[in-house]
Design a protein around this nucleic acid. Sequence first.
DNA 1: TAGATTGTTAATCGATTAACAATC
DNA 2: TAGATTGTTAATCGATTAACAATC
Lengths: 214, 214
Amino acid sequence: MTRIKVSNAPSVRRLPSYLHIIRASRSSGDFYISGTVIAQELNLEPIQVRKDLAITGIVGKPKKGYPVEALIVAIERYLGWDKPTNAVVMGAGNLGSALMGYPEFHQNGLRIVAAFDENPDKIGKTIHGVPVHPVAELERLLPGLEARTAILTVPSDHAQICADRLVKAGINAMWNFTNQKLKLPPEVVAQREDLSSGFAMLSVMAQLRDGRNA
Amino acid sequence: MTRIKVSNAPSVRRLPSYLHIIRASRSSGDFYISGTVIAQELNLEPIQVRKDLAITGIVGKPKKGYPVEALIVAIERYLGWDKPTNAVVMGAGNLGSALMGYPEFHQNGLRIVAAFDENPDKIGKTIHGVPVHPVAELERLLPGLEARTAILTVPSDHAQICADRLVKAGINAMWNFTNQKLKLPPEVVAQREDLSSGFAMLSVMAQLRDGRNA
DNA sequence: TAGATTGTTAATCGATTAACAATC
DNA sequence: TAGATTGTTAATCGATTAACAATC
């Protein structure tokens, strides 16, 4: 089996922003929204928005734009956000706790159903409504949770061991917030979230502006 | 003035990962590291690593690789991580607190020197060693903090107002964790961090694997 | 020396942007 | 109707990958 490759990754990455705007438009009672308007809000090129929206299969009406309701449904469906995804958080530290409390996720169909941690102070409590269990219980509890997605917020040096264990327990999708590149079997999909890379971009932009490096 | 555009953004985004590995190599006592090795660790193509490292100006030795110490210095310098960046966190909620406690940042020259929040329960306390001040004190305290970078972790509906205020107070670089696209004067650089887009990628990969959409 | 690894130049690939006829 | 906006086809741009001579 070969590593999964998303054909149009940049478009997929932009879809959530579109969805956010289009939902707001629906809340305002609009029935149509034009690519031009979406582009303005995100300052993108209108043609880029049209190209991106084309992958959802929704066709717009000249002069009016795209049908709001149908577009929302189509984007949600394209992203697989039309059906709930149960997930567990590994490591109920700062970042893990923050993610459990991140309200936006509910709109994306992401339901964090449990957290696992080693810290006895946290075990048995709930964080933002999510129960924290001992890591030792992972294998026993996971089947009942019906979660096949894990959010990895353990310390980096635990990441690989933790991932191996998750895979054995039945996890097949991993959202990795550690700075460790994970070795995983090919059927497990993984997305690494690297905060440092965003800060690198900000730093380089600031330097360009200030004339360092030129 | 025109919006700042980073010429080779994908390369810049990869540099922090390289830096991480090369630092580990230094800790192991290595004097040289080859692009091949770095590529293997991140599973990238060796040629891509070489191209990326070329932008730092460091030249490698055939058969040995790149000089570890010089490479670290050059990457840090290229990213502007050789001199400390003082930053303030706006909104000491879950995510803001998590970022204050994120140890990796120190290695990137990022020093979070203060947080600002409206919540009286938080004001006057410290979170991960960072003092939390009332937002009302922002303008008074900012000059003394010598921070021109802000990390925005306020609720999305406060984002624009908060950003405007920060800019007026002297902030010129904004790391934006809200899902709000900000309107900013051209001299202020901004990096938006969108957690949803990472989850969109994971969702689409999972669907491709499972054969939905095909 | 032999061969692993480099830097450079060229080829390929994919994403963005431009142009424009179709149309509501 | 007039014109804003669409979808499509082609052009451009930039990033990745390939090829390979140079070299430690």
